[in-house]
């Protein structure tokens, strides 16, 4: 596995798993319609972590309904279905309301893609410094390692998340920008503080 920090590219000459093939199939359709970045657990798995996941998390930018309907149409045409609804309007409503929607191969529930809009600037920044993973049968855009590690350690924080972060830190030791990681950590802490304040005031209003 070769990580070119300057080019923000990681070349992996791995044997593709069923999960990798599923990811490449989905990404191949999405990228024709909009930008995307894959985040969280699958990033660690793609880069060698010894575990499985049933879902792959993806951010897409806040696109118009027309763009979304075209993408939804092609996903259906190419054998995917939405697990949340059978209409493109409802799926788009969910996204606009801040929910994630899931797509799997028709007739299946797992594995699935969990697609969502970024909810704030911190999320939107994933599109600015993504890393491209180059595989034998295609490319996949992932959020940069520093963001992945910071979110796993300081936002999600379960044992599994800490282990995912640790894996990335070990694999790419010497190539992680800890100044950047700490800046993301600060923004995460600010978001958590804002959410705490919001919850506090909402509870008081009830």
């Amino acid at each position: 596995m070769e990580y070119d920090v300057e080019k923000r590219e990681i070349e992996v000459c791995k044997e593709l798993s069923n999960l990798d093939r599923f990811a490449l199939d989905f990404v191949e359709i999405v990228r024709k319609h909009t930008d995307y970045v894959i985040i969280s657990g699958y990033v660690s798995i793609l880069l060698g972590r010894s575990r499985v996941t049933e879902d792959i998390d993806m951010f897409i930018p806040k696109i118009s309904s027309d763009v979304f309907f075209n993408m939804y149409g092609e996903l259906e045409e190419k054998g995917f279905w939405c697990l949340n609804t059978d209409t493109n309007e409802k799926a788009f409503d969910y996204l606009k309301e801040g929910y994630a929607i899931r797509f799997a191969k028709k007739g299946e529930s797992i594995p699935n893609f969990e697609v969502k809009f970024p909810k704030d600037e911190l999320d939107e920044n994933v599109f600015n410094d993504f890393v491209t993973v180059i595989l034998s049968k295609g490319k996949i855009k992932i959020s940069c390692l520093e963001r992945n590690i910071a979110f796993k350690k300081y936002f999600l924080g379960s044992d599994k998340d800490i282990e995912d972060a640790h894996h990335l830190e070990k694999i790419f030791r010497g190539k992680i920008d800890y100044d950047k990681l700490n800046k993301v950590k600060e923004l995460i802490n600010r978001r958590k503080e804002n959410e705490r304040e919001k919850n506090f005031f909402e509870t008081r209003q009830e």
Binding site: M1, C13, E15, K105, P111
Partner: peptide
């Protein structure tokens, strides 16, 4: 180790749980 070696072992785990969903 080579990508081929670790991914072979990783795929023993992943492919045993995730079906091949090629249509």
């Amino acid at each position: 180790h080579s990508d081929k070696e670790w991914s072979r072992q990783q795929n023993n785990l992943i492919n045993s749980l995730i079906p091949d969903v090629e249509s």
